[in-house]
Structures are given as structure tokens and as C-alpha cells.
Design a protein around this nucleic acid. Structure first.
Lengths: 166, 166
DNA sequence: TCTTTACCTAAACTTAGGTTGAGGTTTTAG
DNA sequence: CTAAAACCTCAACCTAAGTTTAGGTAAAGA
């Protein structure tokens, strides 16, 4: 029966996963301790993975490229169904979620760009009015995970930041 | 003469800088050990700063928001003149440099967005052909500082990544 | 069978970017 | 003049995201 179920859904060893996903074996151990991936053990206590672990790792990598922490990525992965192997539609939903997040980050970068222009590039050096000196602009809300949002008004405020008092 | 030069260019104490730049005193000490800012000592061995330190800290903060490391930021700050207090034009040049960097990062994010779409969102799970699994796409060149550039072809490659073998 | 390769755990180490604490000195305000 | 507030150094500590090392077991192939 163990043999039968192994035939049903082929499992990968840690070395195989490491090679195919291009990460170190130690990284897979590490991700497992962090709850990002899961494995089962064979009779000899060695890890065995379902193939969808490869996609999970791809998601982890992509998330890191976007600048997300492993904790945030774990929260995203937690939206996948636990009871069954994720389907194409499950992954597509996750993809859409991340596209939206990327859109936000791109918008954030564009606001930083405006601030750099308005605040470093200009003659303004007053710490009080310049939005760049006020750190409340990165707000973390646990509902959305970390949010990279400046208050949009700040970009405008930067434009008015021309009192070269210092 | 010490008094005269203090009158010429007012110096700030570490506490004043901390308050105005909204960072901890310990952070200023830390930045100093890292060579990001500089100070002089008064007769009692206490730090004194020129006012342009505030702008340097603003630059550090902006750089961090863009995702730069302190080392990278230090390299950027190193482009400022050492011999004199930076002028408006010095800061403007730095601003332009960072705008360009931000443009690159925004472009990078947009490529990641395409990859997330093409590679997680699609049915493709082959590690070999998918650019997402190949880490060489973040290339560090010391000339430019760390570069966030994917090979542009990779975004295209993601589009061809539909062999659902796994 | 025997030896090499792969795998196991646990703990220590690494870098980045700071923060905290201890113990002592300087400045400032009343 | 004295006490509180600000400052000093140095060392230890912290989190994130892993990597490395040490000592031992399992599996694969000649």
C-alpha cells in the first residue's frame, strides 16, 4: 500500500528537489522549519516531496524578488488549499493576487521617484514639511500583510517643499 | 577661532539631528561607524554635525525605501564633493541618478509581474525552461552597484513556458 | 559486500541593519 | 552648585534568511 501510493503520486527526494528548483538542500530544510513547504518521510526517515513543492518554491522565489519576506510569502501560500494538491486555478488565483501587489509596489516606487525629485532634487531642506523625513508613510496592516503604501498626499506635499531654510 | 567657526557654520548635536531627522541616536552612531555620515567633536568629545547631515540622512532613507543597502547608498553618497558642503546642484545630480535607478527598478518590477503571470499563472511547471527557476537573472556588477535587472529575454521566455510536464 | 553518495539532526556561524545595556563624562537648568 | 538630561564607548543582543560543520544513518552501485 505504501508502494501503491508511491506509484500513484511520485515523490521527490530532497536532493532531487534541490536540483530541480536550484536551491540548496539546507534551504529546503530551512523552509520546512519555517512552514513554507512540507514533506513526508520514507521508512528510512528521509524526506519525500510531492511535485507541487517545486511550484511552491517558485512562488517563494518570485515573492522574494518582489521584496516580500518569508513570513509574508507564507501567508500567501496559506491561501492554497490544504486538503488537496493545488490546481491550475489555485495557482492562477495566487498569480492574480501577486500581480495586484506588484501593481501597488510599482505605484509605490513611482511615488518614491516623485519624492526624490521633489525633496532631494529641490532646494528644500526643512525636515518638518518634507514627507521624506516622516516615516509613518510605510504603514503595516496585518490584514493586507505589509503594505508599501505612502500616503498619496505626501507626494503632493513634496511639491510644496521649497523653503530652503537650512 | 573655534567660537568664530561655530558661528560661521552652526553645528548640530547628535540629539538635535536625531530629532530633526527622526532617527535614533544609536542609528547616527551606527551610520558614522559605517562611514555614511561624519561628525566633529567639541571640547567635551561630543559629536557635532553640519546641517547637510540632515539631507544625507534623507538620502539614506530614500535609498532604503528604494531597496538599496547601506553599502550601495554609501557609494552613492561618495559621489558628493568631500572638500565642500554640497550645493543644490550636487543634490540635484544625485536626485537624477536615483530617478534613473528607480526607473530601472520599476521596469524590473514590471518584468517580475510578467513572469508571475507567465510562470505561476500558467500551467507550466517545468523547472528547466522557466526563467523563474534560474537565479542568474539578478546580476551584480560592481560598476553599477547591485543591479536589479533580469535578462530581458527571460520575460519573453516565460511566455513560452507551457509544457505542463509535472 | 563494501564503499561511496545521499541524507539525517542540531548547533554554530554569517551579513545586514540596527537596538539595548552598562558604566562613566559633559552640559544645561534651576 | 547640584541634579537631571544628554552624551560617550564598548559589547552584547536581535531578526531575517540562510550556510556550515560535526557526527551519524540510509541507499545505491560496482
Amino acid at each position: 500500500m505504501a508502494a501503491a501510493s508511491e506509484r500513484d503520486e511520485p515523490r521527490l527526494s530532497v536532493g532531487q528537489v534541490a536540483k530541480r528548483a536550484d536551491v540548496a538542500v539546507s534551504t529546503l530544510h530551512f523552509y520546512e522549519t519555517k512552514g513554507l513547504i512540507r514533506s513526508w518521510r520514507n521508512a528510512g526517515n528521509q524526506r519525500r516531496y510531492k511535485k507541487d513543492v517545486l511550484r511552491r518554491i517558485a512562488v517563494i522565489k518570485a515573492g522574494q524578488k518582489m521584496g516580500n519576506s518569508l513570513v509574508e510569502i507564507k501567508e500567501t501560500l496559506a491561501k492554497l488549499p490544504e486538503s488537496r494538491t493545488p490546481t491550475k486555478e489555485d495557482w492562477a488565483r495566487m498569480s492574480r493576487f501577486w500581480q495586484a501587489q506588484l501593481d501597488e509596489k510599482i505605484a509605490y516606487m513611482m511615488r518614491v521617484r516623485e519624492m526624490v525629485d521633489g525633496c532631494i532634487g529641490c532646494g528644500c531642506l526643512s525636515m518638518k514639511s518634507c514627507p521624506m523625513y516622516n516615516p509613518e508613510d510605510i504603514v503595516a496592516t496585518e490584514a493586507n500583510g505589509a503594505v508599501w503604501l505612502d500616503h498619496p498626499e505626501q507626494a503632493k506635499a513634496a511639491k510644496n517643499c521649497y523653503d530652503s531654510k537650512n
